[in-house]
Amino acid sequence: MSTTSHRVPTALPGFTVSTATAADWRQVTDWAHREGWNPGLRDAECFLATDPGGFFVGSLGDRPVAAVSLVNHNDRYAVWGHYLVDPEFRNHGYGRATCRVARKHAGDRILASDAMPDQVENYTRSGLVRAHDTVHYVGTPRRAGTGGTVPFEPGWLDRVVDYDRRSFPGGRPEFLRHWLTAPGHTTVLRIVDGALAGYGVLRPARGRHRIGPLIADSAADAEAVFAALVAPLDTGAEVSLFAPGGQGGFAAGLGLVEEFRVVRMYTADPGTAADRVYAIGSLELG
């Protein structure tokens, strides 16, 4: 049962929307697992800490039946995610009603979202424009050398935040502060001539391990980071990552294969290029 205190009524009888509690989001994470999304073991805690007001549940009476997140990373950029409806309650408008309430949270920020290919037309009607495909790659990784990489240390946080900002609109310091050091997360830096040339994060999940973000100056730098992330894994362990479509050669060269793809869409051009992004952090928070 949801324990949120303030519920926004909607036009649907008995259906209200409220900001999610941690308990609410544990249920949403279970829904995501049932959908095959393979959430990371610490995703919920890191996500909620990034923008506690950006997570919403829609309830029919006291029963949560729908969810969505709209996370404000900074004062100019927000990301839609976690659009879920309990299968028993689909096709009644509960998801759309939850989104309408959540939309106010982002104000006039640029919005990003990831659409399944068959939903692009619907997202277009909501004011989003197609930018590029994002491909989910999975498999047992090819092992390679890990030279020029070091484990992340807290003293590098500000430099990682500044480096990441070149590829993420407006930056995401709060997200990275939690994500880089969450229990079970492995963060690796690529250092070239004393300067940061890439970084990546590997995290455990209920299924295969997940990699993201992975951002680097070049494919060679990205490969070194990837190799360092997977080196400690057991032989035969599988990993997955979401890569912008232009990085398909990178992922395939590491022994991974495409499983499915989504379409990244924006309400306006965010002003950053995807050519340094070899894996996004997550579909849910970008």
Rank of each mutant, 00 (worst) to 15 (best):
H6I: 10
G171H: 03
T187S: 12
I280S: 08
S5D: 09
A224Q: 05
V201E: 03
V160G: 01
G184A: 11
I280N: 04
Y94M: 02
R264L: 05
D51F: 11
L202E: 03
D86Q: 05
T124M: 12
A67D: 01
V8K: 15
L60F: 03
H132P: 10
E35N: 06
V230G: 08
T124Y: 10
T16G: 11
A112F: 04
D118S: 11
T29W: 11
G14I: 03
T4N: 07
F242A: 11
V8C: 13
A279F: 05
Y163N: 03
W80L: 15
P232W: 01
G36E: 01
V257Q: 13
A268E: 08
P151V: 00
R76K: 06
I215M: 14
E284L: 08
G212V: 10
V8L: 13
H92M: 09
D275A: 03
T50I: 06
I211F: 02
R159P: 10
H33V: 12
R142L: 07
T149V: 01
F242Y: 14
V160A: 02
V17E: 14
Y94F: 13
W80V: 14
A205L: 01
E174F: 15
V138K: 13
G253E: 05
R26H: 15
S240K: 06
S282L: 01
V192P: 14
